[in-house]
Design a protein around this nucleic acid. Structure first.
Lengths: 361, 361
DNA sequence: CGATTCATCTGAATCGTTTCAGTAGTATAG
DNA sequence: CTATACTACTGAAACGATTCAGATGAATCG
């Protein structure tokens, strides 16, 4: 039992079996006060006997206009989503709110075949969408659904479309200021992608101007503000390397390329802890001591950042809180409450062992 | 726009606007070959103009009998699910298969209010359910749905209900044998929960016999086989401490209690890396050197296990593969292909730095 | 005792699609 | 020039529930 391919048992079947109206059976499930307890019990008994597992969610959803699921949209393939150690934290935050309100979480990513995006056909009551590049078709598909939607890590000027971001500019700026205060004068930046389908590599100033991912753009700007405030030249004293993916390997490669520049940077600013860990790994392989030979600062404060050797100096953002806020905003929309104000969450520099004064030249 | 609460635009509206049959409009979306390209284009144009976002997923799902989502069920609250670093890997595995077949992943956990479980009302085509204790009501609810279902980390004797597990017994045994071969004669075990809603603490032999979580039971058994094969006494030479939650904190507490026993264990076997990391943390705080003062062996081989200092000796299982297999099995069921055989994935001891010979007494 | 309320239960409309058996009308074959 | 086959489109019946305005009879009230 449990998996027999019986023809489907419906409300009607059990109504017929008992000689009552289907509406009565429906009431047994949805409005216990509308019928006598005995009849209700008899209905459940019959349902059990016939193997009826309760009202069909889809039919109910259609009629009620509500499914009980919120869509969480990733700009990338779903299977990549979890290579980033902070993704689960964000989801956890949404889950925290969703489960209280009785919603499930439907994860949707872009499918291998670009054309038919799942976002267009997902049965959900609303969406939380993460960090999109300008003009991403998946994003368009989501917006096209005209469902209540909350943006994360992206701004929006559309009224009624709330968003939550973090202070990327401030965080990045604090990170760069920290290194400069330690005496570093030559910096390498391991950047996240600037555009969809980027190939990576050292970026010219022009290319940097074309960043279409919000957080990447904001962090570059934050770094730059600090650099120029210190009287350094962004063009001359800083090298920006774009990593085409947010993985350890790309972090390693970034380190390799950046440290191959001359003059050699004495510190590397990474836009994620994932990349920073890759940088640490490269340094370890090369026998470069951190922080005496090289300083590294990450971004995110992933749980692992505190556990590595050396532990990672990084910019903390509260991913769980970010998820919660997004969840709260969406639920407010879904439940017809007043829309919540967009919010910018704070970031904070956490100094650990991976940053220190530059080596004396 | 995008979020205006217009009254819903339907197929019928756009059919009327063009003076064609609704079935024709439907065909425009689902069977392009059934109508002339020009009409199809006119239909899309009108749809765009009226703000029609394509066939309603729920209505379509109802009619077609397929939603395009697979339910991933956690035995616990969803927000807890992600405190374990290996959970994302498992999901990633499922996602890998699901996204290829065009399915989304609906995460459902137990809701705070025990009664109305989301599993009973989730719009999905099938379920993957993780490690349940015998008789868990959430599990009953899932089975009651009579949808195609795959069990993970649990066996099943029901035909047509495939499962995937790992060789927990073998892995645990290898871990214990490793420690014994190193010379350890007194072991502490930091166990995962044995039953739902357990409170934790040192376990008597009787209590151990009542384990209702499959993996916990299997690992205990594996440890025991190794211990007794070496001529040691399970009752006298081994202390089992049950952690009520799989968290760092509980790992620390386990270490504290286990190391407080006398005679003191010279090694701790933890049933997850998460717990093992807690043990390491406790050791570090106490100034106990690992592995010279204490050996620690984990379970799972979470990504972080290789990165800690000292790196963690552990039993490797391939969580991504576990997810993939589960996904494949479910998809086979969903697509009406022949059911795949249940599978037991291998485990393998990975020796790193956290295990060594016991201190000389 | 007639009027009201109350607790139960019923019927029919509806939710927004898909599907399938047709119907014209036009092109191809014999 | 009639039979055959397409092509392009239509109508109506599902899909499996919920909802809401009644209907029925029993109980309560003044």
């Amino acid at each position: 039992m449990g998996v027999k391919p019986d023809k489907k048992v419906t409300l009607k079947d059990i109504a017929q079996a008992l000689g009552v109206a289907t509406s009565t059976v429906s009431n047994a499930y949805n409005r216990p006060d509308q019928l006598s307890p005995e009849l209700r019990e008899r209905i459940f008994e019959t349902a059990r006997r016939l193997g009826y597992s309760g009202p069909d969610p889809m039919a109910r959803g259609l009629r009620r206009g509500r499914v009980g699921a919120i869509g969480v949209v990733y700009p990338d393939r779903l299977s990549y989503a979890f290579t980033d150690p902070v993704a689960p934290l964000f989801i956890q935050g949404i889950a925290l709110e969703a489960e209280q309100a009785g919603y499930g979480l439907l994860l949707v990513g872009s499918t291998p075949q670009e054309d038919s995006t799942l976002a267009a056909t997902a049965s959900v009551d609303g969406f939380v969408v993460q960090c999109f590049a300008d003009g991403d078709p998946l994003y368009q598909a989501v917006i096209g659904r005209r469902l209540p939607t909350v943006l994360v890590d992206n701004f929006s000027d559309t009224p009624g479309l709330p968003w939550v971001t973090v202070d990327d500019v401030g965080g990045a700026r604090a990170a760069a200021e920290h290194l400069i205060a330690l005496g570093h004068r030559r910096l390498g930046i391991a950047s996240l992608e600037l555009t969809r389908q980027s190939v990576g590599g050292i970026l010219t100033l022009e290319q940097q101007a074309g960043a279409s991912y919000g957080p990447t753009r904001a962090r570059l700007q934050g770094y730059r503000v600090a650099v120029e405030a210190a009287g350094l030249s962004w063009g001359r004293d800083v090298v920006v390397y774009e990593c085409p993916e947010n993985t350890l390997e790309e972090g390693r490669r970034a380190a390799e390329v950046l440290l191959g520049q001359s003059p050699r940077p004495t510190a590397i600013l990474a836009m994620s802890d994932q990349l920073a860990l890759g940088v640490l790994e490269h340094a370890a392989r090369q026998g470069t001591a951190v922080p005496t030979g090289l300083s590294v600062v990450g971004f995110d404060d992933a749980p692992i950042a505190a556990q590595t050797t050396p532990s990672l100096t990084t910019v903390r953002q509260d991913h769980v809180e970010k998820g919660r806020r997004a969840g709260q905003m969406l639920l407010a929309l879904l439940e017809g409450r007043e829309a919540l104000e967009p919010v910018i969450l704070p970031t904070r520099l956490v100094v650990r062992e991976s940053s220190g004064p530059p080596p004396r030249s």
